[in-house]
Design a binder for these strands. Structure first.
Lengths: 184, 184, 184, 184
DNA sequence: TATGAATGAGAATTCATTCAT
DNA sequence: AATGAATGAATTCTCATTCAT
């Protein structure tokens, strides 16, 4: 890819990310083009439609999350419950930073191949971590990776739904983790 | 209000509710008018803009919830934790039935006077119930009515975010209630 | 239909007709709206897309032609070859006045129901007239209504294809009619 | 011209011809470039704008026709009416094969110098042939080369305007030639 | 009061042409 | 000479809101 093309693509993604972060999920391609300082056509060349742009946005961030999850799952000797908490905290932080990221993570199974693959990867790593945490008594039976992901997205919503972003993040995360433990 | 005017208003609200329930949150007033069998102008007479319609929609459902919450809070002799669980289960059920209702409940503080008042009412009743549940050892310190409402909305998202609506509702609600208990 | 709606519809059709007559077959709905002094939305309300506008344009003129053809076919006592010539001359005149009309008449069978019906009507009347003209020795075997319509459209093209519109119409029409006679 | 440049030019012309033959007269240069396996810039190097491409396309085919016409005109000893028929049949065949060719042949006098010159050449040869055919009693007075060209284009339209391309070509051509004879 | 036609700003998208590589 | 990314004016179409009937 040409240097300027790459630069433009990056700018567009950056602007789109910022728009989402500002809570504007309309992703108007004309607006994005203007903000990015490129022509509309350039945006359309890189991303034939709004969905493709969202996809690209997702993939990037999602991959990073998958990497984190794998690292956590691979840390075999470590304290699994603590690893899980760290991973969920990391993920929650990302969701709060980036509304688009949250949207992707939450989007139902009907996503594109790439996103579905990423989700499968994530759930795989998470399942491993969960199993180890369950053996350590920190996770109840009947809760799988899919549930944890969904519940964490819910926690993300709860945190965001006050103006006081992030002030409650730690508390709510703790509520989730306590709730996931086997009932007394 | 003339009888036919009242009837038209009710029809519009009904159609709007159905649209929201079907997951179409665009609330196009022309469409609603058509579906309701009235002219656009009629919709605008009753609801000067889209927001006013949403407001009206909210108020109705929200009031019912407030009534439930007050009844639960007033049941002084009863088992407070059980009352709380019932109330949250009722609320969650509503949220799953009616996406619009969920949206209202979740909407941030920047709502209109009427909605804000309803929320205050809800939180008042919920706070009372929480206090009693806390005295019964079922709720940790540092969790207030606002938190419970937000977390419950999050649970609603988690439940909805699978195709398997409601299949996980009870489990996720249990995770929430366990998580709200004082840490061991 | 409301008075102003009818007026607007007529204006739009009128402008569209003029545009076509000027040889601009792009039929840009925004342009038409501006020229007609109405909003774009008004055009779209009456004609959801360009094709619908063309259709409407066609129908009106086409119906008049069908009426003429029927009258000619019904004039049982008259000189059939002369009637045919008059009808073809009338049709050719229309085609030269109105490029849109010519386009409709020529458009292949893949047209809409309404247009197809009109064409069938036309061909019916024309077939009747042709049979009578054939009995009078003015039409060769093997030439049907469909052929005459197609050939006449071709003559229309030939006339138009010089800057000298209409100067050759009568001659070319005569060439057609002579050519349609049984070979010597 | 470099060998590769010549090859590219030929490819572009070939693809453009195919597009026209497929009935797509939009001649989108980006599309043509892609189909030809060259960059857009290359197309623009050879043909500064769309019109230039059309011109080039025309010229090539048109020249071949002129050659045919001259050969027919030069065949002094032959049966002129038969030569004329052969020439018109050849031309009609070309028009049916290649919609772009038909468009060129038909294009009004306002064409470019090169095309105008070709048309003049064609009309010159055709006029000669017509004169000889007229002397043989096969062409009426008042019909000139220009008329024959225009009428033939019209016949082309008539043939094409059914789905049954070419099935009627011979009949319609015969209608034309009979029609061109002096009236009885 | 009800109606629904009219309005027009604005969003999505295309494509001829230019120009950096 | 070739490439193809970039450009942005132009076009199609939507929809919230107003207003004549």
């Amino acid at each position: 890819m040409r240097a300027d093309a790459a630069r433009n693509r990056a700018r567009v993604l950056q602007v789109a990310r910022e728009q989402l972060a500002m809570g504007d999920d309309s992703l108007m391609l004309n607006t994005i083009a203007r903000l990015a300082g490129v022509g509309v056509g350039t945006v359309y060349r890189h991303f034939p439609n709004r969905h493709a742009l969202l996809e690209a946005l997702m993939a990037e961030r999602f991959q990073q999350l998958v990497d984190e999850a794998r690292a956590a799952a691979a840390g075999a000797e470590e304290d699994a419950p603590a690893s899980l908490r760290r991973l969920l905290r990391f993920t929650l932080g990302r969701m709060l930073d980036d509304a688009g990221f949250a949207a992707v993570l939450e989007s139902a199974g009907g996503a594109d191949a790439q996103t579905s693959a990423l989700r499968a990867d994530l759930d795989g790593a998470l399942a491993e971590l969960l199993d180890r945490a369950r053996r350590a008594g920190a996770i109840r039976y009947g809760i799988e990776a899919d549930d944890v992901r969904r519940l964490l997205c819910g926690i993300g919503h709860a945190v965001r739904s006050g103006g006081d972003d992030a002030a409650h993040a730690e508390t709510y995360l703790d509520v989730l983790l306590e709730g996931l433990r086997p009932p007394r």
